[in-house]
Structure formats: structure tokens, C-alpha cells
Amino acid sequence: MFLEPMLLEQKDQPFDDSRFIYEPKIDGHRLILSKISGKTTLYTRHNNECTAQYPELLEWPVEKDIVLDGEVYCVDQDGQIDFELVMSRFQTKGTERIVAAAKRQPVGLMVFDILHYDGQDLRGVPLMQRKEILDSVVPDTPSIHKIQFLEKGGTALFDAIKQQDLEGIVCKRKDSRYIGKRSADWIKVINYQYADVYLTGYRKSEFGWLASVMGTDGQLRPAGVIELGVPPVHKQAFRGVCGQLVSGEDKNFVYLEPRLQATVKFRNWTKSGMLRSPVFVDFVLAV
């Protein structure tokens, strides 16, 4: 049984408010776990079934019908949560490869909400009552864990998250009902990194600026595509000068001399040296 997940608004800065609880944000992907009539089914937030991808999450000691909301994650050899590893698991194809991957690199599920239990729809129950029910009916196992939360100290938690270079925090109103859409009752604060990049081209089709950074060899190298956060006025300013900087093109891109710079915020550097989810902040240098 798939139930639409509740989504988060975003704020730039953490806050302290006694009406909220605070949880660490797990750097994985959203998962709805449904166990109905003894059969466990897993869904992404977009209602794509992914049961076969995570066999290690299918056997656990809850007999009654239940629907949980959580985040699938994977840890590296140093015990750190690694988004790229869980994405690798998600994209693995073929039963034999999936089973081998589950043994080599098992995932975990961090559960933070309970939506349905033993025939009762719990989405209209206030969050703190849902947390009590979750705690009473879902035991922690080697693969499935309940998330810890604080009832105060959002700013202090975010500071600790930054020191550990983790993804961020989630702030949830204690009296919030669970609604299957985005709501300001749930707020995420991301621990962004910042970098200055060169704008070295743009897509010919949908919007996207090519970003490059200086490599250790002193040469520019590709670092990703900026698609988010660019206001109309900045797009207009870019169009006003980019025609003077064209250095070449191919089927998909127009390339520019590296004379424009921008500041971006992003989640982290990928293992291949790319910006993960870069968001435009402002221009650094205009020609």
C-alpha cells in the first residue's frame, strides 16, 4: 500500500522553536515500507516499487499490517553515510547482482514516521503521538532503525551536524498531521558547501550552465551543470554577455571562454569530482 509522502519546505538557517522537534537529515533516498497481509513492499517517494532492490529490508519482526516512512542509506568503510553508495545499490540490476550487493554493501532504513498500523490510518494523528506509536510497535533490527530526535536545540544540532560534515537537519512541528504534499510543518536546513566556479557554456535545449573548476594541474575541468536557483534577472544578464564569449559548440552545448564566475552552493563533491546538486548564489565577476 503506497501512501503519498509528506515533503519538506526549506530554510537557509537553523532555528530554535519549542513547537518543533529536530532530527538529523539522512543522506539517502526516501522509502515507503508497506507490510500488508504479511507481504513487504518498498516504494520510492514517486510511487516506484523497488522491493527487489533491497532484500535485506524485507524480513523483520512486525506481524500486523503497517506502513512506515523513512530513508534508505548506506555507509562506507569508515562508517560514514554515503549517498553515492546507496544510489549504486538502487541502480543495480539483476537478481544475482542485487543479492551479491546486499551482502557486500548492505543498506539500512532509518524510520522516522508511521502512517498506518493494524488497520488504522495514523496520518491524522499529531506527530508526537505517531512517534510514541512508532516506538512501541517497531523494534530496531540490524537493518531497520528508528531515528533519534531532540525536542529543543535545533541550532546546536545543526552546528554539530556541520562539524561532522553531515547533510543537515529536519525540523518538524510536534502537532503536525501527516499530509501527502509539501508543508511548512516540516522544514529542512541543508549543510551546504560553497565554491566559486567558471561558467564555461550552456545547454542549447533546457536551461543549464556548464560549471568548471581549476584542477590540481592548473587546468579547468568540468564540474557539473547549474540548473537551480538562477533568478530571471541573472539569466538576462548572462544572455547579455555570453554572445561575446563563444568559443565553440556541438550538438548539445555552446561553449564559452572562462571569463564569467559564479558562486554556487552544493551538497558535496562526488567521488568523480563533480558538484552534487549545485545551486546558483550570485555572480562573482562580470565581463
Rank of each mutant, 00 (worst) to 15 (best):
G215T: 07
V137I: 03
K188V: 04
L260A: 03
G168Q: 01
V86F: 12
I169Q: 02
K204Q: 14
A101P: 01
V233Y: 06
I32F: 13
K235Y: 11
A184N: 07
S34Y: 05
G201P: 00
W209M: 11
T44G: 10
E227P: 02
M6D: 13
R267V: 14
Y202K: 09
V197R: 00
Y22W: 02
L8P: 09
P232C: 15
V137F: 08
L42R: 10
G79I: 13
V241N: 02
E23M: 12
A237V: 10
L33I: 04
K235R: 10
Q91W: 07
P14H: 03
A237R: 12
Q120K: 14
G240R: 09
R267H: 05
D78P: 14
I26K: 13
S18I: 10
T263C: 03
R30I: 01
Y202G: 06
G180H: 07
R97E: 08
S37F: 09
V281E: 11
M274T: 11
M87G: 14
L210M: 09
V284M: 14
T41M: 08
K64H: 04
T270K: 03
Y194Q: 06
G108D: 04
L33E: 07
Q193M: 12
Y198V: 00
V111E: 08
Q261E: 10
K265V: 05
E227Q: 06
I21V: 10
G119A: 07
S183V: 03
Q219L: 09
L199D: 00
P106M: 12
L285P: 13
V67S: 04
R19D: 14
S37N: 14
L8H: 12
A211Q: 01
Y43F: 05
R97W: 08
L33Q: 10
F2V: 09
L31P: 13
D65H: 07
L228Q: 15
G168L: 05
G229L: 01
H46I: 14
H234A: 09
D121P: 10
V287A: 12
E49S: 08
T216K: 03
Y192L: 09
L199N: 00
D118S: 15
A100Q: 09
Q164N: 12
G153H: 05
H46A: 14
W60E: 12
C50P: 06
A102N: 05
P258H: 03
G70L: 01
C242V: 09
K188I: 08
L33M: 12
D65T: 01
T40L: 05
E151H: 12
F15P: 06
L42F: 04
V138I: 15
F266T: 04
T95I: 08
Y117V: 03
W186G: 14
K174P: 12
